[in-house]
Amino acid sequence: MYQALRPSRSEFVPVRHLSYHVRLWGHPSADRPPLVMMHGWMDVAASWQFVVDALAEDRFVVAADWRGFGLTDGGTVDNYWMPDYLADLDWLLDHYAGDTPVDLVGHSMGGNTVMQYAGVRPQRVRRLVNLEGFGMPVLKPEQAPERFGKWIDEIKRLHRGEMALAAYPAVDGVARRLMKTNPRLSQDKADWLAAHWSAARPTAEGEQRWEILGDPAHKIINANLFRVDEMLALYAAIRAPLLAVEASDDSLGRWWKGRYTLDEYHERLKSVPDARIARVEDAGHMLHHDQPAAVARLIEEFTAA
C-alpha cells in the first residue's frame, strides 16, 4: 500500500450545525498563508495526500470533507445546494485563516465552488487554482418545468431507497472500482484511497459491507437552472490571480459530447481579470492522482509568484 510521506492529522470543526471533518498537514506559519484544498464530487479530503507528498516545501495545508462526504455529516437532508458549500467554506476559513487571504485550490466540483467563492469573497483569496472545475452547460428557461419535476422524482426515488451507492464485500472491491473509473490509478494508491474513501458497515444480516463515504442525496440534480450570466458575474468579481489547470484527456468532451466544450469554458475564463491556463500531460480528470508531482509543481510555482 502507498506510504504517506507527510501523514495528515484529523480534526472536527463545528460549521453551521454540522461537524466538519478536516485533514491538516504541517503547521501555521507567519510567513506563508494556509494552502486550502477542496475535493470534488464523491471524493474526500484524503485524496490530496499524493499532491501534499509531492510538494517541495512543507506548508500548512487544510483540506476538508465537504458536507455529506467522507467523515463530515450531511445534516439529514435529502438534497444539496451550491450556496451551502460557499457558506461552509467561509466558516472554515474563519476558523483556519481568520483575516489572512489563503491560497485556495479546488478540484472538479470543488474547483467550481472555489471559483464562485473567490467572486463572493474576493478579499479572502490570495491565489486561486482550479483543477478541472469546468462548470455546467447552458440551460434554457424553458427547461425549468422538466428539471423541477425531475428533481422531485429523484428525491422520491431516494426516499424509496433506489439511489443507494454501491457497497462491496471487502475494501479491495472499492480499490478495484477506483481503478476501473481511473485506469491510470496504480494498485498501491487505489488500496490507500479505498481505505479512506469507504468504511465497513454491518448489514441487517450481520455481515460487513464496505460503503462509499458519500451521501446518496448528492446524486439528486440541482433544481435550479445553471445561469451562465450569474457565473460570469462571479468570475468578473475575482481579484486573485487564477490558474486553471486541465488534464490532457478531454473529460469535458467525453461527458457532454458537444453540449459544452473546452472552447466555451475558455471563453468563460476571459471574464476573470487575471487568468492563465495550464495543462497536465498523461492525465485524466483525476489529475491529482495521475500526476501529483506535476500538479504540486504547478501549485507551488503559482503560489510562490
Results as ranks from 00 to 15, higher is better:
Ile152Cys: 06
Ile152Gln: 06
Asp153Gly: 05
Glu154Ala: 04
Glu154Met: 11
Ile155Asn: 14
Lys156Gly: 08
Lys156Thr: 02
Lys156Ser: 08
Arg157Leu: 14
Arg157Asn: 08
His159Gly: 04
His159Cys: 12
His159Asp: 11
Gly161Leu: 15
Gly161Glu: 15
Gly161Ala: 10
Glu162Gly: 04
Glu162Pro: 00
Glu162Trp: 15
Met163Gly: 05
Met163Lys: 10
Met163Ala: 05
Met163Arg: 10
Ala164Val: 14
Ala164Asn: 07
Ala164Arg: 13
Leu165Asn: 06
Ala166Gln: 10
Ala166Asn: 03
Ala167Gly: 04
Tyr168Met: 15
Tyr168Val: 15
Pro169Glu: 15
Pro169Cys: 09
Pro169Asn: 11
Ala170Asp: 11
Val171Pro: 00
Asp172Phe: 11
Asp172Trp: 12
Asp172Arg: 13
Asp172Asn: 09
Gly173Asn: 11
Val174Tyr: 07
Val174Leu: 09
Val174Met: 14
Val174His: 10
Val174Trp: 08
Val174Arg: 11
Ala175Thr: 10
Arg176Gly: 02
Arg176Ile: 01
Arg177Asn: 10
Arg177Gly: 03
Arg177Ile: 09
Arg177Gln: 10
Leu178Ala: 06
Leu178Val: 05
Met179His: 06
Met179Gly: 03
Met179Thr: 09
Met179Ile: 15
Lys180Leu: 03
Asn182Val: 15
Asn182Met: 12
Arg184Leu: 14
Arg184Gly: 05
Arg184Lys: 15
Leu185Phe: 01
Leu185Asn: 02
Ser186Thr: 14
Ser186Tyr: 05
Ser186Cys: 14
Gln187Ala: 13
Asp188Val: 04
Lys189Trp: 02
Ala190Met: 03
Asp191Cys: 01
Asp191Thr: 01
Asp191Leu: 04
Trp192Met: 02
Trp192Lys: 00
Trp192Ile: 01
Trp192Glu: 00
Trp192Cys: 01
Leu193Trp: 02
Leu193Ile: 10
Leu193Lys: 07
His196Phe: 13
His196Pro: 05
His196Glu: 12
His196Gly: 07
His196Leu: 11
His196Asp: 09
Ser198Phe: 02
Ser198His: 04
Ser198Ile: 04
Ser198Pro: 06
Ser198Gln: 02
Ala199Leu: 14
Ala199Trp: 02
Ala200Met: 07
Ala200Gly: 09
Ala200Gln: 14
Ala200Ile: 06
Arg201Asn: 06
Arg201Val: 12
Pro202Tyr: 11
Thr203Ile: 12
Thr203Lys: 00
Ala204Gln: 11
Ala204Gly: 08
Glu205Asp: 10
Glu205Trp: 08
Gly206Asp: 08
Gly206Tyr: 03
Gln208His: 05
Gln208Asp: 07
Gln208Lys: 08
Gln208Val: 09
Arg209Glu: 09
Arg209Leu: 13
Arg209Phe: 15
Arg209Ser: 09
Trp210Leu: 06
Trp210His: 08
